[in-house]
Structure formats: structure tokens, C-alpha cells
Design a protein around this nucleic acid. Structure first.
Length: 576
DNA sequence: GCCGTTTTCGGCCCGACTGTTTTCAGTCG
């Protein structure tokens, strides 16, 4: 059966909820939650791994039993334990756990006392005022439940927001917080700081002179829709656009340990705290402690040092091997945005871009680029006014002219040429030969079967003029799944043929994903981090792709646009 | 259910806030 990783993870999460309802061993429950997280973080579908006879129990957090359950699920579409648990509990009970502040204990109580087995039941009981009468519940809880139901049906649970949108919200909020005279340090932690492609909520940390005043200032922010909690060191609100924001007030001597703690990820933190414990240390948001003596906490560097680890950049903190690497002093030398010497994918008014070659060139020069590749669409992409041979010839001359006119930057003559259904390229080699760079992308016929799509891409790579596979998986965040193909096969073919993979910086693409970056690098291939800019403003996107690359452990030596044009040029010459 | 420099049994990260209590359980991150 074709079972996606998300489905396997969901099944394990459901099992965890149902086990909680049965008062099962809490560590057994956690094992299912852990495994769900591990599966969600895999770079390849479990179905592929199993097809290659990979032993899933090699992954930390998946043991013999769960590995067997996954195999069974892939084979039969069922997990007997889940089926069994589902028999004991009404169908609607799992969705109850999605209501805020409603956990397994309270769900069980509501079930026992009021016979509630679904969201619908919950809603009607709350409306009738029955819930507040149950021991342990009260007026406020009942109101909260009603509100949560309303919100859940309004926005569903898919409340993660793309990083680039959160970026803007976070910047504004940080500026607002800094307006208060009480504030000394402000830092956004959480998955935002780890630069995940989507963010669930914002965790903001501050140090200040007076914690009550800063929390009052925080909840008074004009975009706050409602206040969830407001204590002496912590407050939680929802902004008008639906984003949850937590503010935590820290003491200056604990800022580093607090920042570390709230940056996460949770899986990373748990692992590190286990290590600390083995060393006889305790690590929490207030510092690293030996007995009652605090030995670190002012900054993150100090925290890492205290537990004998090299400094781990936030983007790597996912418990995917970074802790071991840090203890063995072999963390990757991650690419940074300032390592990049130029941009290898941009469009102009010749096709579907908003700015001219000259405008794009000037902006790229302003950004300090050594080069900018102009890579407009090829003829098959009619909707984008793609270039045919004649128009491309003229385009090449136009670029030559701009190069004569402008100094301080090299404009590369390029194309984003379509990979056609049969694996041929959308323009003849005779014209491709006149270009400095060729990005090859798929824009149509996305729904081919896996085998055909894999062959289509590899056949394209057989063309000596093929340089870079553009937005390699075609996914659009929240909108479109990657097309089906065997990435591993394609990477191996690319390595043999000297072809490269784009890390497309557009916030709605971020293609390759972090997990894919890691896998592609491990197989020995190299990357181009490119904006795919359709306007001068979008030339600023480089940081989003770089964040993604860093999350995928990508090293500077494996990014071709970290080279100056003189060096890069050799890598792009056709292998005839 | 997972895991192993306490290694095949016996542990498993840690604290804040809320609401309902009158000392704490439940939930969350």
C-alpha cells in the first residue's frame, strides 16, 4: 500500500491519544509520540526505505516493535493495536484532543460523566451549561471550550504559517517591544529561530528592568486579539491574524540558557538534558546546574561548553545527529548567506518578470553579487510568454549590451528551459550552447508515474547542456505535493553527469526541503541556492533558501554559487 | 515502547500557568 510518512505519523499520534485515555504507561505513550516525530522528519518515504530493505529500527526512537508496526501498516493498511484501541473508544474522541486545554484526562471525565464522544456532543453539552457542573470544571473552562470549538471549525488545526509571513509579523512585534524603556534584550526563539519553513507560534524572550510592566506592554500590543494567559514571567496571546505568541521574561544571567531552552527543538532539548543528567548536571531555562550551583547560563556558548558540546547552530537542533556530531567536533561547516557570490535564477520582463535586465542587474550589484544569471522561461511555458529561438537570440544580445554598459557585476546569459514529457529540452542544443548557464525545470505534466518521471529527469540530464535541476521536486508549500520520482536515483545520475540541484529560495517553494538537502548532499551532489526572482525585490529571497540549506546540513564547499564566476564557469561548461 | 560509559532491567526532561481548589491536577510547551 502507498502509505505516506504523514499517515504513519498520524496513526502513531492517534495511538498515543487513545493510550492516554486508557491510562497506559506514560513512557509507552511518549514512545509513540517520539516515533511519530522521527517519521515526520525522515527524508524519504518509509515505503521507499522498506522497499530498499532498510531496517527502520536503526532510527533512534523506533525500535523493533514500532518498526514491525510500520511494516504491517505499509503492507496491510492497518495497525492492529490502533484497530483494537479504536474499538474501545468512540470515533470522535480523537478530534476532542485537538481542543485546546482538553487533554486525555478531561476527555475521559467528560465521557464518563456526560457521555461525550464527539465534538458535536461537546458543543451541545457546553451550550446547555452541563460542563461547568462537572467536578474539576467550571464556568471559565466551559466558555473556553466553546471558544476553542468555534476557532477549530473556523481555521481547522492547520495553523502553521509560512516563515516569510511570520518574519514580517515577528519583526514588527520586536520593534514594538523595543519601544518600551523597560526592555533590555529581545530575541525570537522557537522554530522561528531554527528557521523552519513554517512556524506554529512565536516564542519571544526578553530581559528587562520590570517584568510586570513589560508584560502589560506586550498584551497591550494593538494586534493582540485575545490574551490566553498572563503571569509574572510569562504571557501568551493570539494576534489578530491567528498567530499565537508567547512572551517569556528572563533574568539577564539566564538569558543564554533561556534562549537555548526555548529555541528547541523539543526532541533536541530532551536529548541534551539526558546527556547533562549523565554528567551529573541539571539543565533548564535558568541555567546549567551542578547541584545547586549554577555553572552556565549567560549565553548559549557557555551552555554548550558546560556540557562539552561544540556550539550547534539553531537550524541543526532537531536531534537528527547534530548532538553526536557536536560531541565529536565534526559539525558541518554550514553555508551562510554572505558566502554566496551571486544568484543563478532570475526572470525579467522578457517573460513573466516585473523588471528589466538592467533593473535586475543594478539591484543584484547593490546586493554585492559578483554575478546574476538571467534565466527566463523557454517557449513551452506559454502562460509566462516563454522564449523561442528567435526571441532568445535577441535576449542574448540584450544581455551582452547590458554587460558592456554596466560594471561591477557580470550578467550571465541563461535560460530556465523546460524538461519536456519525453525528457528532451524545450530548445535545441545549438542555441543552448550560446548560453552561460541552463536551468532545467518541469512545469507541466506533473502527474506522471514514478518510474516515468524518474526516467524523464535522468534523460534530460543526459543532455550535455543540462546544468541545474530547477525547483527539483515541484512542491508548493500548503498547495502541492512533490511530483513522484525516485530522488535517490536522480541524484546518483546527477553526480555521475556533473549536474547540480537548485535550492529554490521562493518562500512558497523552498524546494529542495531541508530533509531532501541532507539526503542529496550525503549522496555527493552539489547545490545552487537561487532566488527564482521575478522582480528586483525578490532578489532578497536568498536568505530563505540559505536557511533551508543550513537546516539540511549543507556545507559551503557544496554550494556552487559560493564560487566567484571565474571558478563557477568551469562547472557549467557542457560535458561534451 | 525505547534504550544502554548505571547495558537486557529499570529508568525515561522540566517548569509555568490556569482554574478549581484550599494544596493541586491538568495541560502546555
Amino acid at each position: 500500500m502507498d502509505v505516506s510518512n504523514a499517515e504513519v505519523a498520524q496513526a502513531f499520534e492517534d495511538i498515543a491519544i487513545l493510550l492516554e485515555l486508557e491510562n497506559a504507561n506514560p513512557f509507552r505513550i511518549r514512545a509513540y509520540q517520539n516515533a511519530a516525530r522521527v517519521i515526520n522528519g525522515l527524508s524519504q518515504p518509509v515505503t521507499d526505505l522498506l522497499a530498499k530493505a532498510v531496517d527502520l529500527s536503526e532510527y533512534r526512537g523506533i525500535g523493533k516493535d514500532l518498526s514491525k508496526k510500520i511494516m504491517g501498516y505499509v503492507k496491510t493498511g492497518h495497525i492492529p493495536l490502533l484497530d483494537e484501541l479504536s474499538k474501545h473508544h468512540p470515533k470522535g474522541i480523537i478530534e476532542l484532543a485537538r481542543i485546546e486545554n482538553l487533554g486525555p484526562k478531561r476527555i475521559q471525565i467528560l465521557h464518563d460523566k456526560l457521555g461525550i464522544t464527539s465534538l458535536k456532543d461537546l458543543k451541545s453539552s457546553a451550550e446547555k451549561g452541563q460542563i461547568k457542573k462537572v467536578k474539576g470544571f467550571g464556568e471559565k473552562t466551559e466558555k473556553k471550550i466553546l471558544k476553542a470549538i468555534k476557532e477549530l471549525t473556523a481555521i481547522r488545526k492547520e495553523s502553521r504559517v509560512p516563515l516569510h509571513l511570520v518574519d514580517q509579523i515577528a519583526r514588527q512585534l520586536v520593534l514594538y517591544l523595543k519601544k518600551s524603556k523597560e526592555v533590555r534584550q529581545v530575541e525570537v526563539a522557537g522554530s522561528y529561530r531554527r528557521r523552519k519553513e513554517t512556524v506554529g507560534d512565536l516564542d519571544i524572550l526578553v530581559t528587562c528592568n520590570n517584568s510586570k510592566n513589560i508584560i502589560d506592554h506586550f498584551v497591550a500590543y494593538e494586534n493582540v486579539k485575545n490574551i490566553i494567559s498572563k503571569g509574572s514571567t510569562r504571557s501568551s496571546v493570539v494576534l489578530r491574524d491567528g498567530l499565537h505568541v508567547d512572551l517569556r521574561v528572563l533574568k539577564e544571567e539566564s538569558f543564554g540558557s533561556g534562549l537555548y531552552y526555548f529555541t528547541g527543538s523539543k526532541a533536541h532539548n530532551i536529548e541534551v538534558r539526558k546527556i547533562a543528567k549523565k554528567m551529573g548536571l541539571k539543565i533548564n531555562e535558568y541555567g546549567v546546574f551542578k547541584g545547586s550551583k549554577k555553572i552556565a547560563g549567560v549565553n548559549e556558548e557557555e551552555v554548550f561548553k558546560a556540557i562539552h558540546l561544540d556550539y550547534i547552530p539553531p537550524e541543526l537542533r532537531e536531534n537528527r545527529g547534530e548532538i553526536k556530531a557536536a560531541s565529536e567536533h565534526c559539525l558541518p561547516n554550514l553555508i551562510t548567506v554572505t558566502d554566496l557570490r551571486g544568484d543563478l535564477h532570475a526572470h525579467t520582463t522578457a517573460t513573466d518578470g516585473k523588471n528589466t535586465i538592467l533593473e535586475m542587474a543594478e539591484k543584484a550589484r547593490e546586493l554585492g553579487h559578483n554575478y546574476l544569471a538571467i534565466t527566463d522561461h523557454s517557449q513551452h511555458v506559454h502562460v509566462a510568454n516563454g522564449l523561442d529561438v528567435e526571441r532568445l537570440k535577441k535576449h542574448i544580445k540584450d544581455i551582452d549590451r547590458i554587460n558592456e554598459k554596466i560594471s561591477g557585476i557580470k550578467i550571465l546569459k541563461g535560460i530556465e528551459v523546460d524538461i519536456l514529457e519525453d525528457g528532451s529540452l524545450d530548445l535545441p542544443n545549438s542555441i543552448l550552447a550560446e548560453l552561460d548557464i541552463r536551468i532545467c525545470s518541469i512545469h507541466y505534466k506533473l502527474k506522471m508515474n514514478k518510474k516515468d518521471m524518474t526516467e524523464r529527469i535522468i534523460r534530460a540530464m543526459d543532455n550535455p547542456y543540462f546544468n541545474i535541476l530547477g525547483h527539483p521536486t515541484g512542491r508548493l508549500i500548503f498547495k502541492r505535493a512533490p511530483y513522484e520520482f525516485d530522488l535517490e536515483k536522480v541524484v546518483k545520475a546527477a553526480v555521475e553527469r556533473g549536474k547540480f540541484f537548485e535550492i529554490n529560495c521562493r518562500p512558497d517553494r523552498l524546494d529542495l526541503s531541508a530533509e531532501h538537502c541532507q539526503m542529496v548532499q550525503e549522496l555527493g551532489a552539489k547545490f545552487a541556492i537561487s532566488t527564482d526572482a521575478h522582480s528586483t525585490m525578490e532578489l532578497n529571497f536568498l536568505n530563505f533558501g540559505t536557511d533551508q540549506a543550513r537546516r539540511g546540513w549543507v556545507e559551503k564547499k557544496n554550494v556552487i554559487n559560493s564560487l566567484m564566476w571565474k571558478e563557477l564557469r568551469k562547472l557549467l561548461s557542457p560535458n561534451l
